[in-house]
Computed example of a mutant assay.
Amino acid sequence: MDATLPPGWPDAVRPPGAPDWEQTAVAWLFDLVPPDYRAHEVLRRYPVLLARFARDHVTAGLEAARAGWRTVRVELADDLPADAMEAAVNAYEREGTRLVSAARGVEVVAGALRGERWVPRL
């Protein structure tokens, strides 16, 4: 991790100020949302708006993963064997972890797109 970047900065996004850093941020943000979002020119023109859409999408996905994790054992108890149930719970847990990381990344990238600069604290 680069000490000049905030915790959670995505590996796929170049540091603010680096050549083409905003293009890497936009590409990463588009990877977080449904492919159809690429058709909206306004999201390409205003990366801060794209970050908002990505935040909303990632947040909704995280809520869905949490709800699935809480309910899958009850709702599919009669439909899945024990090993499949454990695999499903593990998949929800991994997806939740991925989405928490993505949410943090969206937060710090959105801040950088707004011109915020991260200053490490001692």
Rank of each mutant, 00 (worst) to 15 (best):
residue 67 A to G: 02
residue 105 G to V: 01
residue 102 A to Y: 08
residue 64 A to Q: 12
residue 33 V to P: 00
residue 84 A to M: 11
residue 16 P to L: 01
residue 41 E to T: 13
residue 116 E to T: 02
residue 114 R to C: 07
residue 118 W to F: 14
residue 42 V to N: 10
residue 52 R to Q: 13
residue 100 V to G: 01
residue 121 R to Q: 14
residue 117 R to V: 14
residue 119 V to E: 12
residue 46 Y to L: 10
residue 101 S to V: 13
residue 97 T to W: 08
residue 24 T to S: 15
residue 20 D to T: 02
residue 4 T to V: 09
residue 45 R to Y: 05
residue 98 R to H: 09
residue 36 D to E: 15
residue 67 A to N: 07
residue 34 P to S: 07
residue 28 W to D: 04
residue 88 A to D: 03
residue 17 G to P: 01
residue 36 D to Y: 14
residue 27 A to V: 05
residue 1 M to W: 08
residue 81 P to F: 09
residue 29 L to T: 03
residue 3 A to N: 11
residue 16 P to W: 03
residue 98 R to V: 04
residue 79 D to Y: 11
residue 101 S to E: 15
residue 21 W to C: 03
residue 114 R to I: 00
residue 10 P to W: 03
residue 74 V to F: 11
residue 23 Q to I: 02
residue 61 G to V: 05
residue 36 D to Q: 15
residue 53 F to G: 00
residue 26 V to C: 06
residue 106 V to R: 05
residue 86 E to P: 00
residue 30 F to I: 03
residue 118 W to I: 01
residue 83 D to S: 14
residue 43 L to K: 05
residue 2 D to F: 06
residue 121 R to N: 09
residue 27 A to H: 09
residue 82 A to V: 12
residue 26 V to D: 05
residue 92 Y to Q: 10
residue 72 V to P: 01
residue 113 L to E: 06
residue 16 P to T: 01
residue 43 L to M: 06
residue 113 L to N: 04
residue 4 T to R: 15
residue 13 V to S: 03
residue 95 E to Q: 15
residue 120 P to Q: 07
residue 40 H to D: 13
residue 116 E to I: 00
residue 23 Q to F: 08
residue 110 A to W: 07
residue 28 W to E: 04
residue 42 V to A: 13
residue 101 S to F: 09
residue 60 A to Y: 03
residue 45 R to C: 05
residue 29 L to E: 04
residue 72 V to N: 02
residue 97 T to Y: 06
residue 54 A to N: 01
residue 58 V to M: 02
residue 96 G to P: 00
residue 43 L to Y: 13
residue 18 A to M: 05
residue 23 Q to E: 14
residue 120 P to C: 02
residue 27 A to T: 11
residue 102 A to N: 10
residue 60 A to G: 11
residue 104 R to F: 00
residue 44 R to M: 00
residue 29 L to I: 00
residue 92 Y to D: 06
residue 72 V to F: 06
residue 91 A to T: 11
residue 107 E to S: 09
residue 13 V to M: 02
residue 112 A to L: 02
residue 105 G to Q: 04
residue 99 L to D: 05
residue 87 A to M: 09
residue 58 V to E: 02
residue 57 H to M: 09
residue 79 D to E: 14
residue 74 V to N: 08
residue 96 G to V: 02
residue 71 T to N: 15
residue 112 A to H: 04
residue 15 P to N: 04
residue 21 W to D: 03
residue 110 A to N: 06
residue 46 Y to P: 00
residue 27 A to R: 12
residue 60 A to T: 09
residue 68 G to V: 04
residue 2 D to P: 04
residue 3 A to Y: 07
residue 46 Y to T: 13
residue 71 T to G: 13
residue 22 E to M: 11
residue 86 E to I: 13
residue 76 L to T: 10
